[in-house]
Design a protein around this nucleic acid. Sequence first.
DNA 1: TATAAAGGGGATCAAATTGGTCCTAAAGGT
DNA 2: ACCTTTAGGACCAATTTGATCCCCTTTATA
Lengths: 134, 134
Amino acid sequence: MMELTRKGEYAIRGIIYLAQQPPGRVSLISEIAAAAEVPQTFLAKIFQSFAKLGLVTSSRGTGGGFVLARPASAITLREVVEAVEGPILPNRCLLGSACDRGGPCRVHAVWKQVQTEVVHILDGVTIDTLARNP
Amino acid sequence: MMELTRKGEYAIRGIIYLAQQPPGRVSLISEIAAAAEVPQTFLAKIFQSFAKLGLVTSSRGTGGGFVLARPASAITLREVVEAVEGPILPNRCLLGSACDRGGPCRVHAVWKQVQTEVVHILDGVTIDTLARNP
DNA sequence: TATAAAGGGGATCAAATTGGTCCTAAAGGT
DNA sequence: ACCTTTAGGACCAATTTGATCCCCTTTATA
Ligand code: SF4
Ligand code: SF4
């Protein structure tokens, strides 16, 4: 239960690689994919999501590629995960939409607590922490 | 991300109904399904899992049905959820199997922390708490 | 101004998972 | 015997996941 998908794994590995490059260094998607051991075309989609959300900046044409849009210390693991997996939502009813049954039941509060706690943990981890080598 | 499936929702609703019955009262699957608003044949599978894990006891034939195998105060939400959704595992690498890449990376510890925290929350909630009406 | 080197984005696809039904067998009561 | 009720397997449609392909646009530079 609650498993991260491949997309999530790949997203994290990809952005960590980017964070490990010298600041300002532009990386090709092919380079990132090779380093992170991720199918290139799949990773390209992931980085498109990153770019749309402003986590990375992309440039096209010769000499193009990807760079972090902010310092790695200002990008949280939550942002990365939510960029590709959508919001942390242990139960549908946590999204505004009222429960299709009576009102919110007692379980509701438990899922809310789970959500809050997980968000808190993932928000407390930044990419620069993850990028530091053992 | 991390969404509970229908099966999980149904499992919780079903066992809460059972916990709301007078102690010792046997409930038919048809009755539980109607009360919990869950497809009956689907719920039957769910309760089979409960029975195998010893959360409920089942009896066949006339007068048969389901009863909680333990007091509702001794059944945790985690047991119920894991019975149908499998263990709380935010990332595959948390299951003994070593990472297919280098060694465990720094992200590993984060998922471990998420797992621990979620398990802790769900272990702290028992079915009798959930069964009490507003 | 070609041309090559990138990323953007849509279409498409196979495999896996989810959500659910159906049928037969087994067990238990009358 | 016969009815009731769960057990368990086979099966199925819809959705999601994990990817690949192809064509388009942007950009540098020869
Ligand atoms: S039954 Fe409770 S947990 Fe389930 S959707 Fe409704 S409010 Fe949420
Ligand atoms: S890269 Fe890290 S988080 Fe991902 S499977 Fe390996 S150890 Fe686990």
